[in-house]
């Protein structure tokens, strides 16, 4: 039995929060929204809340998807939580563990070798892993009106990075050379994390936890210079392609904030063709301006969509 597809137009932010648009796409026949009717956003929200999980498990067309979701759920249960970022002791421990492991791995794999770039590379890995952990573990704002809470959470996250770095600077005098750049790194983290979390609430209409999607995209983008380096090399002399590839990586943004030509550090030079090609980094101010514009655009679009009436249509019996 196939359930009718309910088209929701225009998509509004609150309906795609944390993948909740999915149940709306598969409303049962006994949905209160038979035919086409105009409802207010509050009604739509209550419908979503009312139908969220039960419909998912009852949807016969999505048995496989349910199993996957249940498996994921089990994983999170093992790690102490049904949904990440919703409280508990592991809430603090998991991101710290992730960041610590990333630093340890980077050291072990010689991404951070001894040398003049050591402090900048350490800070780069620290900032990038904090950003990545933020995507995974910070709860995205459920609504633009709650953006203030989200912003506060991101700010606290950034301040934690600053605190960790200051602790490192006390322990390791070499890290002190980075201190003047720390405000710029923290600002970069704030902008990137805000953008990522906004995208988390906006990006997906098909996944139950959009953070995992955004985290996947983030990881792919971060590693872009490594896994797409050969493509640039084989495409010959294409500065635009090279610059796009380099510029699209969030690692580049952090590196620019740190005044670090990371593609020419030992590990990247050995593992990516880009270090030996011609490329130019954008300036930090260009990145910052771009992020501010995109973030403002996303927030405005979300607010605008939220204020519009919502139409939910379904096939007639």
């Amino acid at each position: 039995m196939r359930f009718p597809y309910d088209l929701v137009s225009p998509p509004s932010l609150h309906r795609i929060v944390a993948g909740r648009i999915w149940p709306l796409q598969a409303l049962p026949r006994q949905s209160p929204c038979s035919g086409t009717q105009r409802i207010c956003t509050g009604e739509a929200r209550s419908i979503e809340r009312a139908f969220a999980l039960p419909i998912r498990t009852e949807n016969p067309d999505n048995t496989a998807g349910d199993k996957i979701r249940q498996r994921k759920s089990t994983i999170w249960k093992i790690s102490g939580k049904r949904r990440i970022g919703s409280g508990g002791a592991y809430r603090e421990m998991l991101p710290i563990t992730l960041i610590f492991l990333t630093l340890l791995m980077s050291k072990f794999l010689f991404v951070i070798p001894e040398g003049p770039a050591y402090p900048a590379l350490s800070t780069l890995v620290l900032a990038a892993s904090t950003w990545f952990a933020g995507i995974l573990f910070l709860p995205p704002a459920d609504h633009p009106r709650q953006a203030g809470h989200g912003t506060l959470a991101v700010l606290i996250w950034c301040l934690k990075l600053v605190f960790v770095f200051l602790a490192l600077a006390v322990l390791d005098p070499a890290s002190r050379s980075i201190l003047p750049l720390l405000p710029r790194v923290a600002a970069t983290l704030f902008l990137l994390l805000s953008l990522s979390l906004l995208l988390t609430t906006r990006i997906t209409a098909r996944f139950t936890d959009s953070r995992q999607v955004v985290a996947g995209i983030a990881a792919a983008l971060a590693a872009l210079p490594v896994w797409l380096g050969p493509l640039v090399e084989f495409s010959g002399n294409a500065p635009l392609l090279t610059n796009t590839l380099v510029g699209a990586s969030p690692i580049t943004v952090f590196a620019v904030a740190l005044d670090l030509d990371y593609l020419r550090t030992t590990w990247f030079y050995a593992h990516s063709a880009l270090g030996s090609l011609r490329y130019d980094y954008l300036s930090w101010s260009a990145y910052a301006t771009g992020f501010v514009i995109v973030i403002a655009g996303l927030v405005l679009a979300a607010l605008r969509a939220d204020n519009r009436p919502v139409f939910i249509s379904s096939e007639k019996e």
């Binding site: 070798p113 040398g115 003049p116 770039a117 900048a120 005044d259 670090l260 030509d261 990371y262 020419r264 550090t265 030992t266």
Partner: peptide
Amino acid sequence: IGYGGDERP
């Protein structure tokens, strides 16, 4: 001496 971007020589 390296590239001049704080990286290895």
